[in-house]
């Protein structure tokens, strides 16, 4: 009886792990395929699209980064994303922490309305704000401008940052704050000298999430910027791809290299910070 049970247990386990492995192959197979294919020559890819590189060639990444693919080298697009993204991350962390702290700790008129506004913003699809945002930025003369894209990214990533920081600050130990205020600190001073140094962890989480979102962003980038020299990573990648027409504007090897370069940053960020990201995701839901 027990032996039968354990055999059945083992059998279910084998089936289970088999099924999981199938999905694991579907889930990461394509990613691995892209990475090793980026080390093949065009001829190798054309002769066999799924074989491993033989021999491995290392030049494709450099070619994509430095030679003009869509009239500018890919490194320019990466720089554009960084020029837009790094200031956006900093602004989102600072503004999100300040507002999150205020929502968690102060009572003020309109706090409820402000939170309702953040909640209502959530279900509105990004493509439904794309045209209004374009119309507005166009009126301000901020289309085709990295400054304009930075402002849009900072504003549209703020809601999540505020929500996450508010969640964190509402569990912030009160006695530390009270002690500081009793010592005669202003709230402003206490925030910067006492709260911020103790909140580096959540601020880093917000920074990682914001940076990933900016790095991966496509819709605002493709609608607000037409000038190839100001284009960020994702629209440049899309322009370089075969797309619906099936015609590659550049070689296969370069296509795979561009994919590998574009994906490696979010993948590394995730692998390094996965526990932090899992925690943020679960926390966000509980709020």
């Amino acid at each position: 009886m027990t032996r039968g049970m354990s055999f059945r247990g083992r059998a279910t386990r084998v089936v289970l792990i088999g099924a999981l492995s199938v999905w694991a192959i579907i889930a990461i197979g394509p990613i691995i395929w892209v990475y090793y294919s980026s080390f093949k020559t065009n001829a190798q890819i054309v002769s066999n699209i799924w074989a491993l590189p033989h021999p491995w060639v290392l030049g494709n990444w450099i070619t994509v980064l430095t030679s003009a693919v869509n009239s500018v080298p890919f490194i320019t697009n990466i720089m554009n994303t960084l020029i837009v993204g790094i200031p956006a991350v900093i602004v989102v962390i600072l503004a999100g922490s300040l507002a999150g702290f205020a929502l968690a700790r102060f009572r003020f008129a309109g706090a409820q309305a402000f939170q309702l506004f953040l909640l209502l913003l959530l279900p509105v699809p990004q493509f439904a704000v794309m045209v209004p945002v374009w119309s507005y930025m166009h009126t301000l003369g901020l289309t085709n401008s990295r400054l304009g894209l930075f402002l849009v990214y900072a504003a549209f990533n703020l809601a999540l940052a505020i929500t996450l920081m508010r969640g964190f600050f509402s569990n912030f130990p009160s006695d530390i704050l009270e002690a500081a205020l009793l010592d005669g600190c202003t709230e402003w001073y206490a925030f910067w000298r006492i709260v911020v140094p103790l909140s580096v962890g959540p601020m880093v989480t917000v920074g990682i999430l914001t940076f990933s979102s900016v790095w991966n962003e496509f819709l605002f980038a493709v609608s607000l910027i037409q000038d190839p020299s100001k284009m960020t990573v994702q629209p440049a990648l899309a322009a370089l791809s075969a797309g619906a027409t099936g015609q590659l504007t550049f070689g296969w090897a370069q296509q795979f290299s561009a994919l590998a370069i574009t994906t490696i940053i979010p993948v590394i960020l995730f692998l390094v910070f996965q526990n932090r990201i899992f925690r943020a995701v679960t926390l966000q839901v509980q709020n």
């Binding site: 694991a24 990613i31 990933s212 991966n216 496509f218 990648l237 994906t263 979010p266 993948v267 960020l269």
Partner: peptide, 13 residues
């Protein structure tokens, strides 16, 4: 980790 990885890839890629 492997199952979550597909979700962090840029959607364009």
């Amino acid at each position: 980790t492997l199952f979550y990885l597909s979700g962090v890839m840029p959607i364009v890629a």
